[in-house]
C-alpha cells in the first residue's frame, strides 16, 4: 500500500513536467532557427515564431497540447510559458 502510494505520488509529481517537457529555464536556443529545431526535436510542431518585447515568442502544438513560449534570446532559456495542461 505504502509502495503504491509512493508510486502514485511519484507519477503525479513527475507527470506535469513529463507532459509539457518544457519548464521555465529550459534551454531552447538563442535564434529562431535553433529554437524551432530544438522544439521539433522534442516533438513539438512549431506554429508561429516571432519577436515580442525583445523576447522570442513561439506557438507550438503537440497532440492536444498547446503552448505559448517566451524565450530570452540572449540566454536561450524559457522565461515564460503558458500551456493548456
Amino acid at each position: 500500500m505504502r509502495k503504491l502510494l509512493l508510486a502514485t505520488a511519484l507519477v503525479l509529481a513527475t507527470a506535469p513536467a513529463f507532459a509539457a517537457d518544457l519548464v521555465m529555464g529550459t534551454q531552447l536556443g538563442t535564434s529562431e532557427d535553433a529554437i524551432r529545431a530544438a522544439l521539433t526535436e522534442l516533438g513539438w510542431e512549431v506554429r508561429k515564431l516571432d519577436t515580442e518585447d525583445g523576447m522570442i515568442e513561439v506557438y507550438a502544438v503537440m497532440g492536444d497540447k498547446m503552448a505559448e513560449i517566451y524565450i530570452d534570446p540572449t540566454s536561450g532559456e524559457i522565461v515564460k510559458i503558458s500551456a493548456n495542461d
Partner: peptide, 10 residues
C-alpha cells in the same frame, strides 16, 4: 484559436 488544430495559425 483555443483548439490544437488552429492554435497559432496566423
Amino acid at each position: 484559436m483555443t483548439t490544437p488544430r488552429y492554435f497559432g495559425i496566423e
